[in-house]
Design a binder for these strands. Structure first.
Lengths: 337, 337
DNA sequence: GCGAGGGATGAATACGTATACAGTGGATAC
DNA sequence: GTATCCACTGTATACGTATTCATCCCTCGC
């Protein structure tokens, strides 16, 4: 391996100018079919691949999308990432993955301006982060997936978290539960906020009051769900159902219940949010509000591509329904009927 | 936002030549401290970020590493990816992530030659894939993590799967198990092969014969583990312990056992491989052979960087120990003692 | 006072491609 | 025969940076 061949080398080999080789590469119609065939043959033989950097510098397109994400080890995020990878790769686009937890924010801001990517996908927008602001201000096409920011002039595709949460609440209320636990997160973003407020709204509409001691605001990890369950279930009069805002927390709650010998759904119903693959596992069999990951990603990337083509499009905010997926962590029959 | 400012624009602003700006950017010592200060001030004010593409074209360095991976939704792979992201980002390197399942192999081969990256990390090398061959042949620095290829002249960092599997087998043998199930994968790579053969070797050394009907070769997903457990445990004389080559399969086995009402570890011991985060969850509490993910990634990326600096280094193959992590899916006491 | 040397800077160029521009040759129309 | 046009191809340039080379000025030693 010395220096990889350039279009100029191949032009010499094929007896044409570098410009003609370039024209062949870009499918420029103004090339004689015979010449094109000859050049293509030479390219083939030399196993030539254009230098993506030089091409990108000239065209301003890198065919690369920057994806910002947190906690890949979280099941839902892994599924989201997988889907993003699938969609991008089907379009012939590369993906640069940045983890905002690892990268200090200012350095992320720098990356934004390096013109390495044609567009950004943000999956973890939170109010206390300036990332989306920087991204949008940089003028680089940007789409927010999964988590939105109210009032941000930027394409956004999110699940209808409020409605999904509302449906979960109504489901519990209609099943006859009155003592209901809510394990929630800080409202650092749209998602957690709506998943919290929608649920409360449903209970309020059903005339059910949530006892303050049955509401716990916890952190993201599985262990926090576990601890929350221990706390809620060791009360004198524990709740008969617990709703929580992510599957990961729901798994922790199920584990906490199991550790205490609390049977699900006999003694306790549990509902999560995201409907991750794990929710279908026998260990959990978790009733969960489904996020339409496939549709979110497909739609979002499509918006992003259209914005790359035409940066002046008005921003669109698309909300997709989140249906409740019922499994065995809640019963098909009314509570204690 | 019109055109982002270039080093030439800033040179004009600072009253110096573009060359001097460039020298400041690259920390070239041959710049007068006063000039440097002045230029830096201008750069700061303009919020200037160098065009990474132009820089890369000139230097041949993109500060980007290409990572090839499959199935990000698999818990172990997610942890591996997370760790790779952490290490790369700490070094100021970007990561382009390619999923070999989504990308047809030939297109991956093309990406390899586009010179978009300084090096490759392959995490899913299998015998039937030509990816590693293409990567190595392309002359781009490459390191194989987690899965190795025997005899490939390329840096490799892998866990000692054989020894880890052997330890798991000896542990079961010493505990007094004689009817042992093995749920394994096709030997498509080093990893699955060694995790299979090492276990068999331990049992052979202990004088234990595995009944052919207690050996199942299955696919990767959780559901396959579930089905395997159902099959093994519904036999007239089911095994008293099952070892399997990934945690994901072990979770499936635990779920299958749970569905049949088989108690773990009372009626059945289960051992997995990878010691993923999920293994510590209450639902599973899985005894598992630990992969030293952190060390594997840290060591591997270090090798890769050294190879990028010096492409003529001899290839190193590093094997790191995989200790057995004992949890409650196996008892601390001998079997049925 | 003068030459040598070194520090600091600017001018020029190269990286590999895409593309505007300027030909060139042949065919067509008169 | 000439003018016009078209299809095709080559020449030259630009993208934004890093770096080589040449230049300039100042200092120092004699």
């Amino acid at each position: 391996m010395t220096r990889p061949p350039t279009s100029r080398d191949l032009a010499r080999l094929a007896g044409v100018s570098q410009a003609t080789v370039s024209r062949v590469l870009t499918n420029n119609p103004k090339v004689n079919p015979e010449t094109r065939a000859r050049v293509l043959r030479v390219l083939e033989e030399a196993n030539y691949i254009p230098n993506a950097l030089a091409r990108a510098m000239k065209t301003g397109r890198t065919d690369t999308i920057g994806v910002f994400m947190t906690r890949v080890t979280s099941p839902f995020h892994a599924e989201l990432l997988d889907e993003i990878g699938r969609v991008l790769s089907a379009l012939g686009l590369h993906m640069i993955l940045w983890n905002i937890e690892h990268d200090p924010e200012e350095s992320v801001g720098k990356m934004i301006q390096q013109r390495l990517v044609d567009g950004f996908v943000l999956t973890s927008a939170t109010y206390d982060s300036s990332l989306h602001t920087i991204a949008v201000a940089s003028g680089t096409p940007t789409v927010l997936l999964h988590r939105g920011i109210d009032g941000l002039d930027c394409d956004q595709v999110v699940g209808d978290n409020w409605q999904g949460a509302y449906d979960a609440g109504r489901y519990l209320a209609e099943a006859g539960h009155t003592d209901i636990g809510l394990v929630t997160l800080e409202h650092t973003g749209n998602t957690s906020r709506d998943r919290d407020l929608g649920f409360r709204a449903a209970l309020a509409d059903a005339g059910i009051r949530i006892k303050p001691r049955n509401v716990l605001t916890v952190g993201v990890p599985h262990a926090d769900g576990h601890a929350a369950a221990q706390k809620l279930l060791s009360a004198k009069k524990p709740p008969t159902a617990i709703y929580t805002v992510t599957d990961l927390l729901a798994f922790g709650i199920l584990d906490g219940a199991r550790a205490l010998g609390v049977r699900v759904p006999g003694d306790l119903w549990v509902i999560g949010f995201d409907n991750t693959d794990l929710a279908a596992w026998e260990s959990f069999d978790l009733t969960s509000v489904e996020q339409p990951v496939h549709a979110i990603v497909e739609t979002g990337i499509d918006l992003l591509r259209r914005r790359i083509e035409n940066p002046d499009r008005p921003a669109e905010i698309i909300t997709l329904p989140c249906p409740l997926k019922i499994r065995k962590s809640t019963a098909n029959t009314p509570w204690r009927s």
